[in-house]
Design a binder for these strands. Structure first.
Lengths: 337, 337
DNA sequence: GTGAAAGCGCTAACAG
DNA sequence: CTGTTAGCGCTTTCAC
């Protein structure tokens, strides 16, 4: 390994026969530099392989041009075959790349991880922090915001304290469409496997189910899951044990819906003949499951893009907070209902 | 948002009635500070919510205490239901956390991304760079190493140029075990759906297949895939068209194997009665597919841990390069073969 | 055991 | 249009 000394601005300046200030101007794209000098500097930069020292630069500019995206989950959850995070990341990445900002991903499954992220951001490693999802009344977004660090969230924060801009989707609306579809196709006993009630997505999807059924004067049959396939399997078994006569189930995530399909097969029920199933997310699995899942599509990449745009406005010196954004959802009908 | 001014060392020093040097000592855990003073400083730090400015600190220490893990893929590939990357990340995360280093994830699906990572590292944003996988003869690891930046790779680099420490698994050994299992259970015409031939994993798994069959004097039947489920479906269809009499197939990844299962069902072949299928990876899907897949398990999290340990040795001032490490693989027999 | 002082490498006024 | 100068906030000798 060639532990070559990194050249400094000074070295480039000497080589090009100009002052450090001029080199700095060229490197930062100032237009007020004579063409010949600019060229000489550029050549010196190339020859030396000069790259500005980020620490020195940040020290004076107070910027790093990189932005953190926090995945408040363990690696297993982040990368399950649930493609929520990838889609968010893709959307965020697209916008940030266009703005020439570096995206830094951080996973914080643990309490300790939370603290490290806070220090990381406060220490000035990044110019702003985006949350890819929010659990319960997570205090971190508010804490960072109070520290003066630009913060935006994907998913409405349940925490009322410090206002933080966010982007979310119309969970309840999508669920209502799903449940109405079930009612319209003649289903009588419509159950649900709900998501975790410490997340807005879990709460609002359940609310959508409850509200729509209540409106239609139908009974509610609810069990709770945690968005994992395993919990979908268990949830379906529990539902079947409690209400053997059910003929439809709205499952709050595709992964859980896939689990439900597995449990239904195990119990000898045909889908959709005996039991209709509708999921939520429109992940890949919903197209490859047997049968393919009717589900609710949410524009996740668009969420990511919106999130990034809000952040860019914030770090771009915008003084007022961006307004929250709620994106529409859409029922995708396949074979399971 | 309270854009409160961040307190500096100076502010803490004034408040505690000591010099900046002393505050610095306390903050950095020096033992040569009187207990009473240390306490006064600590109190001042807490009251002011002081967090050291990372840029200023890095400028003098030449360290950032954070390390990058490069995922040289697009978001879609990184987070497919292929759980390779999550497992690597988990392993790396565990070790780094213990060493109090911050893990920074970066995805570089594009050419442009590659450049940005190089600049990012050379600019001193991180102390070292780990690659979670390697495509073809990627020049980036070598380029960074030549720049004097600590580099380690998961997957043997195909690039001979600059030597870079790496950790990999015994692909060929695992495949050989799989193929021998197929032979031992009486299969006659054993085909394979290979992985991409621009990656060591693809090449060596194919080599394991070819070598073992040749040794046994059996014919080789090969089609190429790219580790995606879709390519598994197509590969299996192609195989069936070309060699309708085949009775076994070794598929170079579980995701492709799942696709093969789908194609086999579509063609009316029973697994394992008509055709035996063995995958590679032991991802979650192999337990939930129908039937569950016989597959080759690789200790991915262990790879991640080893990778991190190599890196820590490097940034810890170790002068000599860590030796490459090759971890063992293991055949996991389930119902598909 | 503690303080004073000298930079780390860069940018940003401010002159010229 | 270019150079000089003054720091950004911190660590680290070196005296005391």
């Amino acid at each position: 390994m060639t532990t070559r000394e990194r050249p400094t601005l000074e070295a480039v300046a000497r080589r090009a026969g100009v002052s450090r200030a001029t080199v700095s101007r060229v490197v930062n794209g100032s237009t007020t530099v004579a063409a010949t000098i600019r060229e000489a500097v550029t050549r010196a930069v190339d020859e030396l392989g000069y790259v500005p020292n980020q620490a020195a630069r940040s020290l004076v500019t107070q910027r790093t041009d990189s932005i953190a995206l926090i995945l408040p989950e363990t690696a297993n959850r982040v990368f399950s075959d649930d493609l929520f995070f990838p889609a968010i990341i893709r959307g965020v990445g697209t916008e940030l790349e266009a703005a020439d900002k570096q995206l830094v991903l951080m996973m914080t499954g643990s309490e300790a991880g939370h603290h490290r992220v806070e220090r990381y951001a406060v220490a000035g490693h990044v110019d702003g922090v985006m949350f890819a999802s929010i659990h319960g009344a997570d205090p971190l977004p508010g804490a960072l915001a109070r520290r003066g660090i630009p913060v935006v969230c994907s998913g409405r924060p349940m925490n009322a304290g410090t206002p933080v801009p966010y982007v979310d989707v119309d969970h309840a609306g999508g669920v209502a469409a799903a449940v109405r579809h079930l009612i319209a196709t003649g289903r009588q006993r419509i159950a649900t496997i709900a998501g975790p009630q410490d997340m807005v997505a879990g709460i609002e999807r359940l609310a959508g189910y409850t509200g729509t059924l209540r409106e239609a004067g139908r009974p509610e049959i609810v069990v709770a899951g945690d968005f994992t396939r395993e919990s979908g399997i268990e949830g379906m078994r529990a539902l079947l044990a409690r209400e053997p006569s059910l003929d439809a189930v709205f499952v709050a995530s595709d992964l859980m819906a896939h689990g439900a399909l597995l449990a239904l097969r195990e119990a000898g029920r045909r889908v959709p003949d005996d039991v209709a199933v509708i999921g939520f997310d429109d992940f890949e699995i919903s197209r490859y499951s047997d049968p393919p899942l009717t589900t609710v599509r949410q524009p996740i990449a668009e969420m990511g893009r919106t999130l990034a745009r809000q952040m860019l406005r914030l770090v771009g010196g915008g003084t007022e907070l961006p307004e929250p954004v709620v994106l529409p959802t859409e029922l995708i009908v396949r074979d399971s209902a």
